[in-house]
Amino acid sequence: MTAIRDSKVFAIFVLVLVLIVVWYVGAVLLNWGVVTDRFSRDGATHSLTDIVLTTLSYTRPVLPAPHQVAVDLWNTTLTLAPSNKRSLLYHAWITLSATLLGFVMGTVLGVVLALFIVLNQAASRSLMPWIIASQTVPILAVAPVIVVLTYNVLTGQNAVAQLLHLDADAAQLISKAVIATYLSFFPVVVGMVKGLRSPETIQLDLMRTYNATTTQTVWLLRWPTAVPFLFASMKVAVAASLVGAIVAELPTGAVSGLGARLLIGSYNGQMVQIWSVLLLSAILAGLLVLAVGIVERLVVARMGARPA
């Protein structure tokens, strides 16, 4: 019994339950005003239970109750075909594709930069301060601008556009992925620089005594030691990438994607819709981090690590 009570899962479970209860209480309290206001206009008297029940099922609530969000999420995901434009899964896929593309580009860029930084003194000195400074720039806040600009470059009258010949959808996807890339490369660079530098001097010296080339040292020593760092930073990067893709969809005239649903919901005052989009993006973030974790376990096992 104490084993259960002391376990992490039990603690999380209880706290999530508490949060849901707090949410319900909050829904009753926050919707109280609008509901009593409407009831007083009817003129008829209503009992306390009546008011409380209405606060939890009001169609335009200040704060929707958890079950309303859950029902809306259920209706917009599982009851509709994923190709239906009203299905949230369709919009989630639009966002997810930009997220994944940006994540892959960000990871590759991050690894390449990290290799460059670790192998070249001058690069380390000139790039590292700027890479750190690049993250103090609130680029996420200006993401929509970057998206519009990238889109214009990719579809406009210029050499790049003529070279690539992209249609509007692909250009939109890439322009969103650029933001996701910008957000996700940073954790990878920082983690990989640390990881690639983690072999001890004695190990590097051993490689020297074997007369190993730089490529061999990287591939046989530095890279394997950096893999755990890579996965730790990829978990951060994939979550950042999702945030980037969602924000990139905000005021860019995008009509599909989770960010666009969020904006449309906010213009129409559809609280329930906003919350179900938020919940879905939370689920998505969790699944993405989980997926990276699973790949990590497979790769690490394949590389011969024993379970700790």
Partner: peptide, 8 residues
């Protein structure tokens, strides 16, 4: 989480 989504 994409907490900025809470903005609206």
């Amino acid at each position: 989480l994409p907490l900025v989504g809470i903005a609206p």
